[in-house]
Design a protein around this nucleic acid. Sequence first.
DNA 1: GACATTTTAGAATTAACATTCTAATAAAGC
DNA 2: GCTTTATTAGAATGTTAATTCTAAAATGTC
Lengths: 193, 193
Amino acid sequence: MGRKPHFTSDQFADAALELISEGGPKAVTIAAIAARIGAPVGSVYHRFQSRERILAEAWLHLAESFQEGFISLLEKDDAMEAALYTPRWVRSHPKEARVLLLHRREELVAGPWPQEIRRRAESLEKEIRSALAAFSCRFFGSSEKQLVRRCVFALIDVPLAAVRRPLEEGRLPSPAVQSLIRESCESIMRRKP
Amino acid sequence: MGRKPHFTSDQFADAALELISEGGPKAVTIAAIAARIGAPVGSVYHRFQSRERILAEAWLHLAESFQEGFISLLEKDDAMEAALYTPRWVRSHPKEARVLLLHRREELVAGPWPQEIRRRAESLEKEIRSALAAFSCRFFGSSEKQLVRRCVFALIDVPLAAVRRPLEEGRLPSPAVQSLIRESCESIMRRKP
DNA sequence: GACATTTTAGAATTAACATTCTAATAAAGC
DNA sequence: GCTTTATTAGAATGTTAATTCTAAAATGTC
């Protein structure tokens, strides 16, 4: 019952993703999203409550998918594999990587988050926190704050830093980048005080 | 000749800086700048050609001052001191650090840069590039691309990554952060292939 | 075929801001 | 005091983009 859809939610979401990836948050106007798939602006609002909502859902979707893979490596207790997850993910998801890793969450989703979105974001946050604490416990024998910080630095912050420059310049992280990550990770995770 | 100024360029520039630091680029509206020091919007335009211009000059000013210190350490041939420059600068310039290190240049200054600003930016770029090449030459005995990249990673990217998380959360980088930078730098710069 | 419902279409409305404009003020030189 | 000029003041204008609204089209049901 009802007219047959020409445009799906996913089409709009994908368009939004591409627009961010290509031109940053500023490029994501409702008109631009609609134009990209030849839809009228009204149809965007038929699928999404607001621009905020589109961006929030897009961001969350990416964050969830990125984090899932990372945590499953953490659970295998292989620090090096976890550290190398980021450059690999970037190589396999270049478009998505530019969205997730090149922009701060606040620039994408400014205002107060919609109820349900916030819930999912907090759950994500909790999940990564506990996964890291558990990893630290197994790896270092303790989940003391400083040790967890060390894990965050070696397995998340440094890989991110290594990958950011190529992403900015529209390139993919080279093998040399992986090697730098490897060396850093090794030295940072070696210390077991 | 002429009325005595109530508001100086610097006051507006400082106001803009604080607004970015506190609320990101979106918070920097002409009205907000004016309001912060109790000036009328007209006076902002009496001092600056445009919003772009204010932001571009603020950014450039910070970049120049940050880079100057960094390069002078590079010239002393002390890799470790250069790597530790970033957390120290952040501690001594917290407000400025949030502006310079937390936001991408493109988010602050979007459009085409004013002539003279672009010139200064390009000169900055050239300066850091050549300083790094020279350093690599002295340190590694070569300014081969891969080696310069290694310097950039150890002395810039990693320190930046280490400092970003505290900055995001409104804290200053702790001594623990410095220690992580030290360890990474040591291992990355050790290799002399 | 009339009806209810979903969806397309795109025009109209609104809000936030950058920018421009006009007028009023104050200081310095004559 | 008069003129010139820098500056303050803030109202008026214009633009961009989100959001809302109204109408039309298409599809399944009775």
